[in-house]
């Protein structure tokens, strides 16, 4: 057997091993993904119940145009994201929000909401490039939806009902609201309850 043939066989064996390792790793990721619970947004105590009709409001946007909140929206859902210019976590969430606007554009409208002085918000919108989002400054809106901490998100389904809500600190928290709507599971507690108790291992 020539050196060339031997080295070729060795290379194929190496590639075969690499393929098996990649397959095992991808399989492991799939298994882990099924085992862990989704990173659900933390639901806080709030006056509104999931499934109830969301308060309907028409408020002026930062640019002066009216923004309709809640109500039936012709097959489209609405995400209200409550944030503040002074909130560092809110700023870290903005890239995820832009991604969500693109990925979920087929069914979702995103509205940013806050309260306080209009000048600060106008500067915030300019600085962070948020002019593509309707932006509402209204203390009444926050009170209506029982917002106590920021950043807080409320997902209203196409029929105008409250689909999911929660404190969103990460991309995973934000996406968990969409998954909650798709699966009909309102909270992480409900999800874990549906899965049933996990079998205890010797290490637990």
């Amino acid at each position: 057997m020539s050196f060339l043939v031997a080295s070729q066989i060795a290379l194929w064996i190496g590639l075969l091993t690499l393929g098996v390792v990649c397959m095992a790793l991808a399989r492991q990721i799939g298994v882990l993904h099924q085992r862990i619970a989704p990173a659900g947004a933390l639901s806080l105590r709030q006056p509104l119940k999931l499934g109830a009709a969301a308060p309907e409001l028409v408020l002026p946007g930062l640019d002066g145009s009216p923004v309709r909140i809640g109500g039936a929206r012709g097959g489209r859902s609405q995400l209200l994201l409550f944030l503040s210019p002074g909130c560092a976590v809110c700023e870290t969430l903005l890239p995820a929000l832009r991604s969500a606007q693109g990925a979920e554009r087929g069914w979702l409208d995103i509205v940013l909401a806050s309260d306080g002085e209009g000048d600060r918000h106008e500067a915030f919108v300019r600085e962070k490039g948020l002019s593509k989002f309707p932006y509402v400054v209204s203390e009444h809106l926050g009170r209506s939806y029982g917002v106590a901490k920021l950043p807080y998100a409320v997902l209203i389904d196409e029929a105008g009902h409250l689909s999911s809500t929660g404190l969103v600190n990460t991309r995973e928290h934000l996406e968990s609201l969409f998954i909650a709507k798709e699966t009909g599971v309102g909270s992480i507690q409900q999800f874990l309850g549906q899965r049933g108790p996990r079998p205890a291992s010797s290490g637990e």
Partner: peptide
Amino acid sequence: AFLALYGALDQTMSLTAPRS
């Protein structure tokens, strides 16, 4: 070796896709 790589691709593409 190609079968192993195909299996790896099969496993990877069956994973839940990130939303965004």
